[in-house]
Every structure is written in C-alpha cells, then in structure tokens.
Amino acid sequence: MSDPFSINGGAAVAMVGKDCIAIACDTRLGSQSLGLANNFEKVFQMGKTTFLGLTGLATDVITLREDFRLKNNLYKLREEREMEPKTLANLVSTSLYERRFGPYFVSPIVAGLGKGGQPFICGFDLIGCIDFAKDFIVSGTASDQLYGTCESLYEPNLEPEDLFETISQALLNAVDRDALSGWGAVVYVVTKEKVVRRVLRTRQD
C-alpha cells in the first residue's frame, strides 16, 4: 500500500528491432485497486525519433514529463538540434541522481534512433542508474510479467511490422496478469522514415 511505485499502477516496455525501435505503455491511472482514468499515457515524444517512458507514482510521472519537456526544449534552442537518445539517457540519469536523497518514484525508459539511425534503448532505477540493453527494457507494476512475455516472444532483428506485433502481445498479455495495469495501451513504432502511433483496444476491466 505505502509503496509509492504501486499506488497508481502502470507499465511500459521498449524493444529493439532491425533499424527500428518500439516503445509502448498502458493507459491506466489508478488509486490502488480503483481505476481513476483510462487516458493516462506514460510514453512521451522528446524528438523526431526519441521517446521517454515513465511509470511509477503518477504525480512524479507528470512532474518529470514537464521537467524533461522543459530541459529538452531548452537544449533544442541552445544547440539548434535535437537531443540524441544517448544524451537524453544521461540527462535523465543526472536529473534523477540530483534527487538522490529524496527521489522521484519512477522507473523511466528511453528509446530512440541515434545518429545514423542506430537503435538505442535503456532503463533506469529511481535514482538514475542506467540499464543498457540490446533487446528490451521493461518497467512498471507489470514488469515481472513483462520480463516473462518479452523473454518468450522477443527475437532479434524484427522488421517494424513484426516488432509491433511482438511488443503489443508482450504488453497486452503482461498487463492482463497485473491488476494495476491495462485499461488501454499505446504503441509507437519508430523507423528512420516515420513514427507510427497505434492505440490498442484492450479489455476494460
């Protein structure tokens, strides 16, 4: 009950494919077992091909989303270019560690295409320790379930269409086994050419 990570619920996942990445989240916002809203997205676009996912305590999700929106916009104005996913990852890390002794209760993930379309994904703990991964990153109250579904469904070098199917099934089947996640889902599939956003219809119970 008093664990801030599982008051509001929610899940997010990112995957690497062949010259593409996908990042997805559920849209539930709850207050323990009560569902408050089914329109609470947890993945935010930071650049043309760069995305930030935030799960955990919903107030901190909103606060950090706004904080990184500010920092990202100032960066774009200063440097006259977009932030690389790797740079965003380091910014997230340092920003979280600034609150080392009074942390935001979130588990962020970053996914994007770097210079030359290089796929990049990573995750963080609440004080900013980066978890670099080659395949997939999970986060949220359904992270245990997501590890299971991702381990069994993921394969390397998937084309964008197959990656969409894989990440969607991984997320949907994981959140169905978590009482605090679900209530809709959003999936982004990112290639050098385009970003495709799909809203998934899920069970609404």
């Binding site: 207050s31 609470f40 107030t59």
Partner: peptide, 21 residues
C-alpha cells in the same frame, strides 16, 4: 480535473471523490 493530495491529475468526463467512489 481530478487532483489528489499527491498532485496526481486526471482529465475526466465524470468523477467522484471521497466515499462517493
């Protein structure tokens, strides 16, 4: 908008707070 003591904000078509939920 439903806003709780943590600052959690939800944009809703209809809402209840307190015992009404």
């Amino acid at each position: 908008y439903s806003i709780d003591l943590y600052g959690t904000k939800a944009i809703l078509p209809y809402a209840a707070q307190g015992l009404g939920i």
